[in-house]
Computed example of a mutant assay.
Amino acid sequence: MAVTSLSGESRPRATMRDVAALAGVSLKTVSRVVNEEAGVSPDVRERVAAAVQRLDYRPNLAASNLRRTGARSGLIGALVQDVSNSFSAGLLRSLEDAARSHRTGVLAASLDEGVDREQELVHDLVTRRVDGLVLMPASDRQDYLVAELRTGTPAVFVDRPPRGVDVDSVVIDNLLGGRMAAEHLLDRGHRRIAALFHLPTLTTAQLRREGFTAAHTDRGLRPDPRLVVDGVASTDEASEVVHRLLDLDDPPTAVFAGRNILASGAVRALRERGVHHEVALVGFDDFPLADLLDPPLTVVRQDVTKIGRLVAERLFARIGGDTSPPQHLVVDPTLVSRGSGEIPPRA
């Protein structure tokens, strides 16, 4: 591969052999210096370092890792629903921080809830010899991973539990989160509570809906089925749904948005109708600037940093040779009261 200098001239990328020739040492000595191994005198290290700098040499870390370990690439793959979503972005950042301490890079991609895309990307990452996988699955079952797991590629599931395979997983208590949101609104006197949920095929949406319903059932209540809407997949759809619900003869006095992008759509609709200080709103998942809205958004918050840390701990333990039974970790959410969820029902 050619590189271009600041003057615009193109020249071949320097190799370890070039560094050895300029420093007047062996290839093995250059390898020891580059990989920070012992057995090289200070003056020789200085000569090699000077040659590296003069030649703009960049070591092939992937090849180096493979030589030293016989199997490692120094890369992990992370497949999430959407890398632009604040939850996914926070998760990836937490993984990146943990991976850096293991001198490992992260290859990330969005699944966009595509089953075929999930399998294609997993195959692509495995062929690139990633050391492990982090997966937020879009598929109903993940039996297709059996062969990869059998050959030693560890995987940790996040946000959604595995089905068809038994591997480590880290998820939020979605049932509890849905219950917390509904109870918060019921405690403030709301009885006509609208609820927006993502795709009903997803475990997260199913459990948040079950928690929402259970909070009503515990009080001898039943949510109005006209106010509970499944399959809301985007901010725009959420906004349209809330507008439609507000047009009912007996509109909701509160809204629970079961996902951060749905909360954004609900905020927009309430503001467009001029009722954002009259209709209560609780969202699931926090997102940047939610606390600066008018009113500030009350949310069921997931500890994304903790989730990412636990995922990384399990993955790097498996990469390091841990063969203990799979662990299925569940993290409790917290409800953050900011104002929107504390608006009382209209008289």
Rank of each mutant, 00 (worst) to 15 (best):
L135G: 03
L111C: 12
D187W: 06
R268L: 11
D143R: 08
V130W: 01
H198V: 15
A181P: 11
G132C: 11
V165L: 06
L125R: 00
L133M: 00
E120F: 10
T253K: 14
R219M: 05
A195R: 12
L293Y: 07
R271M: 10
V282Q: 06
E36R: 09
E113T: 12
V80K: 01
D322N: 11
A147E: 13
A108T: 01
N174T: 13
L111A: 03
A254P: 07
D173R: 12
V300C: 10
L145W: 02
L6M: 10
L125F: 00
R209F: 00
R226T: 10
P252F: 14
T213V: 11
E148G: 03
L315Q: 04
A71D: 03
F284R: 06
V115M: 00
P137V: 00
I172H: 01
G177E: 13
P154W: 04
R191T: 15
R128Y: 01
L335K: 08
R268H: 05
S324F: 04
D224A: 14
D82C: 04
L297F: 14
A62K: 05
L149K: 04
T15M: 01
V40N: 04
E342P: 11
P252G: 14
L61R: 05
V229E: 11
G164K: 02
S88L: 05
G308Y: 03
T15W: 02
E46D: 02
I307W: 00
R67N: 05
Y57R: 00
R222I: 10
A49E: 08
F87T: 04
V311C: 05
S139D: 01
V241W: 04
S7V: 08
L246R: 07
V170F: 04
G105S: 13
F287A: 10
L91C: 05
V165P: 10
P154L: 00
R226F: 06
G283P: 09
P325Y: 02
